[in-house]
Design a binder for these strands. Sequence first.
RNA 1: UGGGGUGUCGCCAAGUGGCAAGGCAGCGGGUUUUGAUCCCGCCAUUCGCAGGUUCGAAUCCUGCCACCCCAGCCA
Length: 552
Amino acid sequence: MSTEARSNFLKTQIQSDLDGGQVEQLVTRFPPEPNGFLHLGHAKSITVNFELARRFGGRCHLRFDDTNPEKESQVFIEAIQEDVRWLGYQWDGEVRYASSYFQQLYDWALCLIDQGLAYVCDLTAEEAREYRGSLTQPGKDSPFRSRSVAENRELFEGMRAGQFSEGSRVLRAKIDMASPNINLRDPILYRIRMAHHHQTGGQWPIYPTYDFAHGQEDAIEGVTHSICTLEFEDHRPLYDWFIEHLPVPHRPRQFEFARLNTSYTVTSKRKLKALVDSGAVAGWDDPRMPTLAGLRRRGYPPAAIRHFCEEVGTSRSDSTVDVAMLESAVRNELNDSAPRAMAVLNPLRLTLTNVPEAEQLSVANHPNNEAMGSRPVPFTSELFIDAADFREEANKKYKRLVPGKRVRLRGAYVIEADRCDHDASGAVTRVYARIIEGTLGADPEDGIKARGVIHWVSAEAGVRAEVRCYDRLFNDPNPGKNDDVMSALNPDSLRVIGDAVLEPSLVEAAPEQVYQFEREGYFVADRFDHSAERPVFNMTIGLRDTWSAANA
RNA sequence: UGGGGUGUCGCCAAGUGGCAAGGCAGCGGGUUUUGAUCCCGCCAUUCGCAGGUUCGAAUCCUGCCACCCCAGCCA
C-alpha cells in the first residue's frame, strides 16, 4: 500500500471533520520557535503538516512562535525558512509571527482579568513552585489570588507599562490549584522580560507564555487542526480553556502525535550543541549532523527525507525508527536521480601494455535510464583502479582482477592481468595487464568471460580530489540515552581521502550535485568547498553491500 | 504514589466484531558490463498478560503488567 493510501489517526480525523462539515477547509501550521536549527525531528512535523494540507486541499502556515526573545534570533528565522523551502514546501501567504499578535493577546489577557479569570501574582519563582504542590499533592492558592478585577487591571497595565522589575510579578489564569493536571494549577500567562525582541524591539516589557499564546495564535489564523507532539497532551485542557473563555474568531483543535526518534541519532538541541561546541563535528551543518543543513550538505535529497517521514507513518506510540529506513529512502531516491560516474578512492596504477593510443569512450550516465544520456570518458594506457580490486591470489568468489584472469573495465574493454610490481614492504605498486581486442561492448570471442566488472580512471586525464567519507556519528544505537553523548561517538565517522582520482567530467560538477561513483556509493559535490580547481566530494551513502559483510 | 498516554514481526505501521496490509531489516533464487538496481519467493495460527462477552475478538468488558510524558516566569 502506498504511503498516500495508508491511513493514520490524523487523516481519519480530518476526513471525518470535513465530511461532517465541522471544518470547511483544512488549515495546519508549522510553528517553530526561532531558537535553533531545524533537524530530522522538525522535518517530520513539517511533512505531517504540509502533506496533510496538500492531501486535503487545505493550507499550511509557517508561524514563528517567538514569545521568548531571550532565546531567539533573526539568524534562526532566516535559516528555518531556507530549510523549509529546501525540504520542498511553500507556506501559505506571508511568514507569520506570534509577536505580531502581541496586542491582541494582551487585550485578551485583560478580557480574562475582567471576567475574574486571571490575576497578577507577586510570588517569587521559588514560592510559586512551593505553592504548586507536587504530582501527588494538590497546590494551594496564591495569597494574591483574590485581588479585585480593578487591582489586577491596574497591576497588569503597570506590568505592560514597564513599571515593575523582571520576575517581580506575573499574570496567572485562575483555574484550580488542586487540579490533578498540574498545567491547570493557575498557569502563568505573562512574565516580565526587559529584553529586546528580534521583531518587536523594545515595544514590550511583558511576553506571553506558550500556553497562553499558542491556541490563540491558531484561532487568529483560522488553524483548524493544531498538530503538536505528545508531550503537549496534558496542555490540551488548558488550550481548550482559553478558547472557551475568550472571544476568539475561530475554534482550533489540538491533536498530538509521537515525535520521530531515529536510531544512532540525537536530536536534543543541548546534545547537538555539545557536539558542535566540543569540536566533535565541524559545525551545525557538518554532514554527520541530523540537522537539515547537515543532511543537505551530506547530499541527502529533500525528497528522500520527505518519503522517509511518510513511510515511517504518524501514530501516537513512542517509537524509534531504524536509521536504515532513512538510508534506504536516500538510496532509493538517488538510485533514480544520480548520474553515474567513476572515481577511484584508493588508487593503484594499472598499465595496459597493448594500448598504444588514447581513446575517447562514451559511457552511459545511467544504466536503466537512457534519457540521462552519456558522457565522454578518456581511455588511456595508464589507468588507476582501486587497490581493493586487485589481488595476487584469490579464490573463485573474488570477482575482480587477479593475474592470469580477466575482468571488465566498466564501459570499456575486458582486460587480463599479467604481473605486478611491489615496493620494499611487499605491497603492490603497479599492475600490468592487456586489453582483449574486440571486447568494447562485446564479450571475448574466445568465450572466456570476465569474472567481474571494476571501475577505473585514466591516470593522465584523471583529476585529484578530496573525498570525505562519512560513517554514522555514533556507535551506540541509542546515543541519547545518557547525558554524555561524547562517549557514544564513533571515532571513525570521518575519513578524509586526499588523493582520490576522478574522471574528468566530475570536475564540472555543480555544488550539491550528487553522483553515484560506480561500485562505491553516492557522493555530493560539497556545497561550500567544492570547485573545479579543488574538487571536494562528500560521501552521501555507500551502495547497499550484501557481499563484504558476509565474506569478511 | 496524582493525572495524561502507549503496547500488533528484529525496527516502523495499517487494521475500528468476520481469513493479521505494507515498508525497513533479514533469508533463498533469477537477470545484470555496478557484488548496485530490478524481478520472484520466504519471513506474526497470533496482536503486552490473564479472565470474560460473542457463532466469531487485535478490535467489546474486567483485572493486571510494562514503558513514555507532566511539578520552567522554556516551547
